[in-house]
Amino acid sequence: MKVTIEENEETGKFTIKVKTEDGEEKTIEIPKENLEEILAKLPPNVEII
C-alpha cells in the first residue's frame, strides 16, 4: 500500500491519496490538526510518499 500526502497551503488541509496492492485508489482531505492521528493509525507495511 502506498500513501501520498500533499499539503494544500490555501485551505490548510492535507490531501491523502491511498493506492492499495490491488490498484484501488482513494483520496481524502483532512485538517492539518488530524494528520498525526491519521498517521498513527496506518499499518506498518505502508509506504509513505
Rank of each mutant, 00 (worst) to 15 (best):
I30A: 04
P44D: 07
V3E: 01
E47W: 03
E24Q: 12
E33A: 10
K17W: 10
M1C: 14
E6T: 13
V3D: 01
I30R: 00
T15R: 10
T11I: 02
V18Y: 14
F14W: 07
E6L: 10
K26D: 04
K17T: 15
E33M: 06
T20E: 04
I28Y: 15
E6W: 14
I16N: 00
E36M: 13
T11F: 03
D22A: 07
E24C: 15
L39Y: 01
T11K: 12
V46D: 02
V46E: 02
G12I: 01
N8L: 03
T4P: 01
N34D: 14
N45W: 14
E37L: 09
L42W: 07
M1Y: 05
A40G: 07
P44C: 10
T15W: 06
E33S: 08
P31C: 13
E24L: 10
V3S: 01
E10R: 09
V3C: 11
I16M: 04
L35M: 05
E9C: 15
L39W: 03
L35H: 01
I5L: 05
E6D: 05
N45H: 09
I30P: 00
I38S: 03
L35C: 07
D22K: 06
K2A: 05
P43W: 14
V18W: 15
P43Q: 06
T11E: 13
E36R: 12
A40W: 02
K2H: 08
I38D: 00
A40K: 11
T11W: 02
P44L: 09
T11D: 14
L35G: 00
K19I: 15
M1T: 09
T15D: 08
T11C: 13
K41W: 11
K26W: 15
P31N: 13
K19P: 02
T27Q: 06
G23L: 02
D22R: 05
E47D: 06
L39A: 00
E21I: 12
I49W: 02
L39P: 00
G23S: 03
A40L: 07
E33C: 07
I5A: 01
E29M: 08
L35W: 07
F14T: 15
M1G: 05
E47L: 12
K26V: 14
K26S: 12
V18E: 01
E36I: 09
E6R: 05
P31E: 14
F14R: 14
G12F: 02
T4G: 01
I28W: 14
K19W: 15
K32L: 09
V46S: 06
L39I: 06
T15Y: 07
A40E: 06
K26M: 14
I30T: 04
N45R: 05
E37F: 07
K26H: 14
V3W: 05
V3A: 03
I49Y: 04
K32I: 08
A40Y: 01
T20W: 15
V46G: 03
N34T: 08
P31Q: 11
T27P: 00
L39G: 00
T15E: 14
K32T: 05
E9M: 10
V18N: 00
A40N: 07
T20I: 05
E24H: 10
K2E: 05
T11Y: 03
I49E: 06
G12C: 10
E6P: 00
F14C: 15
G23E: 03
N34L: 15
P44S: 09
K26R: 12
P44R: 09
K19Q: 14
N8M: 03
E7F: 15
E10Y: 11
E36T: 08
I38L: 13
I38P: 00
K19D: 03
K13A: 08
L42I: 04
K19A: 08
E47V: 12
E47S: 07
A40P: 02
N8I: 04
V3T: 02
V3F: 04
E24I: 12
I16H: 00
E10H: 11
I28D: 01
E25W: 14
I28E: 04
E37T: 07
K13D: 15
V18F: 15
N34K: 14
E6V: 12
E25S: 06
T11L: 05
E10C: 14
P44A: 09
E10D: 11
K13P: 00
T4N: 03
N34G: 12
E36K: 11
E21R: 09
T20K: 04
N8D: 09
I28Q: 04
E9H: 13
I48H: 03
E37M: 09
E10S: 09
T4R: 05
I30K: 00
E21A: 13
K2Y: 11
K17H: 13
T11G: 08
T20P: 03
E24V: 12
N34R: 14
E10T: 09
L35Q: 00
I5N: 01
E47C: 12
E6F: 13
K2V: 14
L42M: 06
D22V: 04
T15V: 14
E29N: 06
L35N: 00
K41G: 11
N8S: 07
P43C: 14
E7I: 14
N45L: 06
T4F: 14
K13V: 10
E36S: 11
F14N: 14
P31I: 07
V46Q: 03
E9D: 09
I5C: 07
N45T: 07
P43E: 05
K19Y: 14
D22H: 08
E36V: 09
P31V: 09
E10P: 03
E36Q: 12
L39H: 00
P43A: 08
E9L: 12
K17E: 05
V3L: 04
F14I: 15
I16A: 00
T27R: 06
E21P: 12
E47H: 11
N34F: 14
K17R: 08
E29S: 08
A40M: 07
F14G: 13
G23Y: 02
G23D: 02
V3Y: 04
T27S: 08
D22F: 09
I49D: 04
K13E: 11
T4V: 08
I5P: 00
K41C: 15
L42Q: 00
L35V: 04
E33L: 05
D22Q: 07
E25M: 09
I38Y: 15
K17C: 10
E9Q: 11
E7L: 15
V46L: 05
L39D: 00
E7T: 05
L35Y: 04
P31M: 12
E37R: 08
G23T: 02
D22N: 10
G12Y: 02
I49R: 05
E7Y: 15
I49F: 06
I48F: 10
E25G: 02
E24K: 11
E36G: 09
K41Y: 08
I38V: 10
G12T: 02
F14D: 13
E37P: 03
L39C: 05
I38M: 11
E47Y: 03
K17L: 11
I28M: 10
E9T: 14
K32Y: 11
P44Q: 08
T27L: 08
K41H: 10
E33K: 06
M1L: 09
E37W: 07
E7Q: 09
N45I: 05
T15L: 12
K41Q: 13
E10L: 12
I49N: 05
G12H: 04
